[in-house]
Amino acid sequence: MKILITLLVSGIFTNNIITFGLLGVKELEESKNQSLSSILKTCAAFTLEFLLGTIITYPVLKWVLLPLNLEFLAPLVCVALLCAVIFGAYILFKRFLPHLFGAVFGGKNLICSVAALGLCLMNLNNDLITSYPIAILYSVIAGLGFTAVSVIFYAINSRINSSDLPRSVKGLPITLIIVSLLSLAFGGFSGI
């Protein structure tokens, strides 16, 4: 139970993939004009990618590359495996779950996700991740953290859209300011 709480606090607040590592800011910027349901679908797709990515990459990195001192190959291996797993999921969803295909893959470039690659690479050096099941659990929690920030960002952004901002602050600057404040707020949980 203690481990679960630690993982939850770490994955959602203190080591959140967006606010701590600043990975996935691009996805937030792209989600600006989307509806909440569309954002939630995107987050579900990313959580699935984190999960599948960790299931496939963790054993290869931890049990093959690390013992052979081939750590420097980790990024290349991760990109190849992530592409393979996403492509496999793409075919499986299209063939067997066509009603979910649009929701998961509709208009999203999951293959080029910095957040997923970052998570898979950082799993190697995360002290909290001590075993394979914990790595899988942490990937789902990281997805929840991603969803939490995306939903908060949507709520803040929808209020900002209705206010009169200077033209030079609109767009990317306001996204960076919001993420900066969220990062500051989430960083406050690090004392727990």
């Binding site: 606010t19 701590f20 600057p173 990062s183």
Partner: peptide
């Protein structure tokens, strides 16, 4: 911190 860095990045983009 990362948050401060983002704020500086926002300022430069403005």
């Amino acid at each position: 911190t990362a948050a401060g860095g983002l704020l500086i990045a926002a300022g430069l983009t403005v």
